[in-house]
Each structure stands twice: as structure tokens, then as C-alpha cells.
Computed example of a mutant assay.
Amino acid sequence: MDRRSFLRLGAAAPVCLGASGAAVLARAQTQSEDALLATQGWRVYEVTTELSLPPAAAPASAWLPMTAARLGDYQRTLSSRWEAADAQARTALAPGYDTRMLALSWPGPAAAQSAELKAKLVEMVALRDRKTDLGLAPSAQAPREPAATLREYLAPTRLLPTGGIVKTTAQQITAGASDDMSKARALYEWVIDHTCREASVRGCGVGDVARMLRTGGVMNGKCVDINGLFVALARASGIPARDAFGVRVDTSLYGFKALGKSGDISKAQHCRAEFYAAGYGWIPVDPADVRKVALEEAPGGLPMSDWKVRSARAMLFGAWEMNWVAYNHGHDVALPGSASPPVPFLMYPNGETVAGTLDSVDPAAFGYRITSRRMA
């Protein structure tokens, strides 16, 4: 299927389920492809998630994260489609945070399944780099969020509390800061200075912020831990903040080898963060990637004083290179049809089979593969 045919498919009727069980979802396009690509800086990627479970896994269910439909002026999902033979398949929206997913179910029984349980989700996403000019004065024309939305991004979650040791730590860090921007800057610098990326942590980490703070000293983890710590401290300081859960889809055009991935991106999930400031809107940050550059950019790591680490540190307060696509901002996500408790976040495929819960951070054992390619 060529690219334009694919995008025309993306503007078609919403769901069609045939006798073969193949299904197609289309999300309405808000802009034509040509109009979108004519504006400066947009790049289009095809992101494909493929799932294959053995026949004996049935009855089985799976939940695949879907890319956010529209975020600011830096992400547009142009179209989505799926194929899911012999499965009951539908899109679902988890309560709160606008967390979208493709929900799949193979009812079984296992003896009735003669072939592998397969599904494929293909999404076309347009991205362009994001930067907030913090050298400008706050503007009345800046994007504004409704008060209810800001209250949602001040609330605690199960792993991101805002009281107790989190509140006390936030107050200590921001003492003397007079406004939200200076408080957020103090939190960003503190998180970078007091955390360390730990390669042995599985996946992207868990994000148990209170446990991290109770360890004292250097707090090890990965992006969900480090950026989640920033988000919890910001909320405890009265600053609306949120995680952004997604996956890297391309190499870095800025020269950071550690901050990009293309082709097979099954293990390229990455969580980012942002905070809200009146007169600016949502401001992107990523202290976890500063620590990733320090650990992984060169063999043996780089000192924090290295020019490349300092460059990442300066850039990632106010900017994101969009070689990464966002799924959602969700926490404590209830998976529809699952009897299990809500998952802390939805950034990986999740699955349950007759044998139990699948390991989301082990693509091979689970049976999924995610790939990306940049369209010409």
C-alpha cells in the first residue's frame, strides 16, 4: 500500500469487522498530508506494533498503547489501522488522562485455536521539534489550560504522592524561589544532581517516588523514576506537571547517540516530563535524558562537566527533540476487561493469557515487536 492510499484509508469510516476478523480503525485527519508537510519542520513516521501469541495462550487479552491524536503544535496522528484475525478488537479510552489503547481479546478455548493469535497496529504520526523560548516574557497569548485540567495534573497518583517526604523535599529544594518558573528550574537541577541512571533497572523503571526519596543520597533509576520524581516534586510545589509516556522512533539529529533509536524500537520506550507555567503553557523537560547522556553517550560514561552533558542539560529544560512519539500522560491505568489492578502507566503492550500476566518489558517473551520508519 502506498503512502497516499494509506492516508486516504485513515480518513475512512471508523471500524469495519469482516468475516476474517480483520479490523480497520481510522482516526479523522485534521489536516491533509500536503498541508501538514508544507509547514516547517514536520516529519512523518510509520509506527507498527505486531503481536503474536501461541494458540495455547487462549483465552487471552492484550492492550496496545496508541499514539496521542494531537499534542500542541508538535504531534499529529494522521491515521491508524489494525488487523486482528480471530480477535475481538476495539479502541478504548481509560478514565482520566485521555489514555488510548487498542483492546484485543481471543476468547478461546485454547483447543479451538488452530493458529497463532496475531494482531498488528499501524499508525502514521507527524512530529516536529518542540521548544519554548524562555527568554521571552510571559504572554497573554500563550496556550491556556482549563482550571479542571490543571487540578488533575496537581493530584497525587499511587506512585507519585505529593505529601509526606515528597512535600518536605520539594519545600527544601524550592526555598527562596519566588515563582513557578524558578521553582521548576530548581527542581530540574536538583533532580539531575541527585539521581543516577542505573543500567540494571528493567525497562524504564517503576516510578516509586517516595521509595526513591527514602533511600537518601544518589537515587538510581531510569526515565520513569527520574522524570517521575520531577513531576511529583513539581506537583507538591503547586506546579501542574505530567509525565509523557512514549517511544523513540528515530536517531538524534542533534548528535546524541544515546537519545535515539530507529528500526526495531521494541525496547526504545521513553518517559518525558513537562510542567505548566502561566504565560508559557506546557514546558518540556527531560532530566532523565541528561543522565542517559552522562551514562551512555561514550564508553565508560561522561562526567557531568563534559560539554555534551552540559549541552543536553541546557537543551532539555524547555525543549524536546521530536524523534520520539507520545502515547499518553496516564497514571493508574485501568485496562478494560482485565481483572487485574490498574497498571501504573501504559507505555508497553500489556497482556494476559490462560497462563497469567505477560512480561511487558520483555518483547521476545511476550511476543511483540515495535518498528518505526521515517516516510520519504
Score class of each variant (00 low, 15 high):
2 D>F: 06
10 G>R: 11
10 G>A: 08
10 G>T: 10
17 L>R: 15
19 A>L: 15
21 G>D: 03
22 A>H: 09
28 A>H: 10
33 E>I: 07
34 D>I: 12
34 D>P: 06
35 A>F: 07
35 A>H: 14
37 L>P: 09
37 L>S: 02
41 G>V: 08
44 V>F: 09
46 E>Q: 11
47 V>A: 13
51 L>I: 08
52 S>T: 12
53 L>H: 11
54 P>G: 10
55 P>H: 11
55 P>Q: 09
55 P>I: 09
58 A>E: 02
62 A>D: 02
63 W>I: 04
64 L>N: 12
67 T>P: 08
72 G>Q: 02
74 Y>N: 10
78 L>D: 13
80 S>T: 14
86 D>S: 09
88 Q>H: 13
88 Q>V: 10
91 T>H: 12
94 A>V: 03
98 D>A: 13
100 R>P: 08
101 M>N: 01
103 A>W: 06
104 L>A: 06
113 Q>N: 06
119 A>P: 13
119 A>R: 08
122 V>W: 03
132 T>R: 10
139 S>H: 06
139 S>L: 05
142 A>N: 05
142 A>P: 15
142 A>K: 04
144 R>D: 07
154 L>T: 02
156 P>D: 06
161 P>N: 00
162 T>D: 08
162 T>P: 05
167 K>L: 11
169 T>D: 00
170 A>T: 00
170 A>C: 01
178 S>A: 15
183 K>G: 11
185 R>S: 13
185 R>T: 05
190 W>K: 03
191 V>Q: 12
193 D>Y: 07
196 C>E: 14
201 V>E: 12
203 G>Q: 09
204 C>Y: 13
206 V>Q: 09
208 D>Q: 14
209 V>T: 03
218 V>S: 06
219 M>R: 11
227 N>T: 00
228 G>H: 00
230 F>S: 05
233 L>C: 05
235 R>D: 03
237 S>N: 11
246 G>I: 08
254 Y>N: 04
256 F>D: 12
261 K>A: 15
262 S>E: 04
265 I>W: 03
268 A>L: 12
271 C>L: 12
272 R>L: 10
278 A>C: 10
279 G>V: 07
283 I>T: 05
284 P>K: 11
288 A>H: 02
293 V>W: 07
294 A>M: 03
295 L>G: 03
297 E>D: 13
297 E>N: 04
298 A>S: 14
299 P>Y: 05
303 P>T: 06
304 M>S: 10
306 D>R: 03
306 D>I: 03
308 K>C: 12
308 K>T: 14
309 V>S: 09
310 R>Q: 09
313 R>A: 12
314 A>R: 12
316 L>M: 04
317 F>N: 04
320 W>Q: 06
320 W>S: 07
327 Y>G: 01
332 D>F: 03
336 P>N: 00
338 S>W: 05
343 V>Q: 11
346 L>N: 04
348 Y>C: 00
353 T>Y: 14
354 V>L: 07
356 G>I: 00
360 S>A: 15
365 A>V: 15
368 Y>T: 01
369 R>G: 15
371 T>D: 14
372 S>P: 04
